[in-house]
Amino acid sequence: MSENNIQNTPLHAMSVTVTQTNESSKRSRSSTSPDSPPESRFVSVLDFSTWKTKLLLLESVVNLKDTTITDLSMKVTQLMKRVEQLENELKDVNEKTKLLDSDVHQQKQQQDILLEQQNNLKQQQETIQQQQQQFQQQPTDQGLASWVSVASRAVARVEGKKVNRTPQQIEVLNSVVSEQRERERRKRNVIVFGVPMSSKTTPEGQDADDKGFIERAFRAIKADVKKIKNIRRFKANPSSNRPAPILIQLYGDGDRSVILKAAKELRKLTEYCEVYINPDMTEAERILDKKRREDRYNLNQQERNNSSNTRYFISGDGFRKFTVEAGCGADTQMQQ
Rank of each mutant, 00 (worst) to 15 (best):
223 A>Q: 13
152 S>C: 05
40 S>T: 11
181 R>I: 01
88 N>F: 02
203 P>R: 09
237 N>W: 07
29 R>S: 02
233 R>F: 14
314 I>D: 01
181 R>W: 00
228 I>K: 06
171 E>R: 10
251 Y>G: 03
73 S>D: 12
221 I>A: 04
161 K>T: 06
319 F>P: 00
64 L>F: 08
211 K>L: 13
25 S>P: 00
182 E>M: 03
126 E>I: 05
64 L>A: 14
29 R>C: 04
15 S>I: 14
303 E>Y: 03
235 K>L: 09
158 V>I: 13
92 D>I: 05
47 D>C: 08
305 N>S: 07
226 K>F: 07
270 T>M: 10
328 C>N: 11
275 V>P: 04
303 E>P: 00
11 L>D: 06
94 N>V: 12
6 I>R: 11
223 A>S: 15
134 Q>V: 02
206 Q>W: 06
160 G>R: 05
6 I>L: 15
217 A>L: 15
48 F>A: 14
241 N>S: 11
187 K>M: 08
91 K>S: 13
96 K>C: 02
175 S>V: 00
38 P>S: 14
335 Q>V: 02
125 Q>E: 03
106 Q>S: 09
95 E>Q: 11
132 Q>F: 05
331 D>T: 09
37 P>E: 01
28 S>E: 04
30 S>A: 07
57 L>Q: 12
60 S>I: 07
85 Q>K: 14
26 K>H: 09
7 Q>Y: 14
56 L>H: 10
15 S>T: 10
160 G>D: 02
17 T>S: 13
274 E>K: 15
77 T>F: 06
193 F>W: 10
314 I>C: 01
69 I>V: 14
126 E>H: 12
173 L>Q: 04
169 Q>W: 03
191 I>K: 06
134 Q>S: 06
10 P>S: 06
58 L>V: 08
296 R>W: 00
107 Q>D: 04
233 R>W: 15
289 D>F: 01
184 E>T: 01
222 K>N: 15
41 R>P: 00
312 Y>F: 07
319 F>M: 01
304 R>Y: 12
17 T>F: 07
23 E>D: 14
104 V>D: 07
26 K>A: 08
104 V>T: 09
183 R>T: 00
87 E>K: 14
154 A>H: 03
21 T>D: 03
257 S>A: 11
331 D>L: 02
60 S>Q: 13
221 I>M: 13
329 G>T: 02
251 Y>S: 13
69 I>K: 15
114 L>R: 07
245 P>E: 05
231 I>S: 09
212 G>S: 14
31 S>F: 13
232 R>Y: 05
259 I>H: 04
218 F>L: 15
249 Q>Y: 02
250 L>M: 05
128 I>G: 01
201 T>F: 10
276 Y>F: 11
321 K>T: 12
310 T>R: 05
260 L>P: 02
191 I>G: 05
145 A>T: 00
4 N>Y: 12
229 K>I: 03
49 S>C: 07
114 L>A: 08
